[in-house]
Design a protein around this nucleic acid. Structure first.
Lengths: 129, 129
DNA sequence: ACTTGACCCGGAGCGGACTCCAGGTGCTTC
DNA sequence: GAAGCACCTGGAGTCCGCTCCGGGTCAAGT
């Protein structure tokens, strides 16, 4: 029956803080959330789903400005599907690059670590820092 | 003969901006760089190597505070090798987690993209946004 | 009747990592 | 000797993404 979620429940399920939820709403990342009597927000299931999308985008490093763009397109309806898809594809490529970079630098890191490892057991001296 | 690099050269080779180089020096990420006559900085080969390490750490998302800790340990000499190694290992694990998370969210992203793809060609209607 | 607790609002504040600025110095190059 | 250029300094400013604050409201519990 109670198809709505209280702010507290949304905090729990979305993992966003109350402040962040209000912030996202203010800046238009989230549609204006419905209010119950007393002015309290009541989030619909859709809202929660949308928050899942935001979490995905955010956690993959999409800047807020771009998320807003995406939200705006989504609000505009079915006519923007191609554009939204393009946006996500580009972002996916960005994520790909990020991961590749990370892996590259991580290789250096591991090298450094194994160099340290050679310095530890034996009592020999060394030069590098 | 000129074993030293000018600030401009270091910018070029390290990829850090002049301002960032000075900033890193100020906050102790970089040892006080030697000066030539006229007070200009002259970077040694070691400095450049160290900048390479910083780039690696930075690009893998290590916060500056931790880099400073690492720099401090490095300055303290060979006695801190184990600790430095531990720090890097922990960071490496952090990177691993980051990549895993990224991959996880990227999977959702790709799912979303392929959902959009189904919406494009056919003229059928749909419900999700 | 009163206290709690969950929420509301607008606006200020924060932490991180730079980046920019104004004014100054000193070597070349016309 | 004037102009350019690369560099110097300390300190202020910027951008991002929240996070906190003070004061207020409402409903439920004791």
């Amino acid at each position: 029956m109670t198809d709505f979620l209280s702010p507290g429940q949304v905090v729990e399920r979305s993992g966003f803080s109350l402040d962040t939820l209000r912030y996202y709403e203010r800046i238009g990342l989230l549609d204006r959330v419905e209010r119950g009597p007393g002015g309290r927000r009541r989030y619909a299931g859709e809202d929660l789903e949308w928050l899942g999308v935001l979490r995905c985008l955010r956690d993959t490093g999409m800047p807020i400005a771009q998320m807003r763009r995406y939200a705006e397109l989504a609000r505009e309806g079915d006519g923007t599907i191609a554009e939204r898809m393009a946006l996500l594809i580009e972002h996916d490529e960005q994520v790909e690059r990020t991961v590749a970079d990370l892996r590259g630098q991580q290789a250096h890191l591991k090298q450094k670590i194994s160099w340290y490892r050679t310095q530890l057991p034996g009592p020999e001296a060394a030069s590098e820092r």
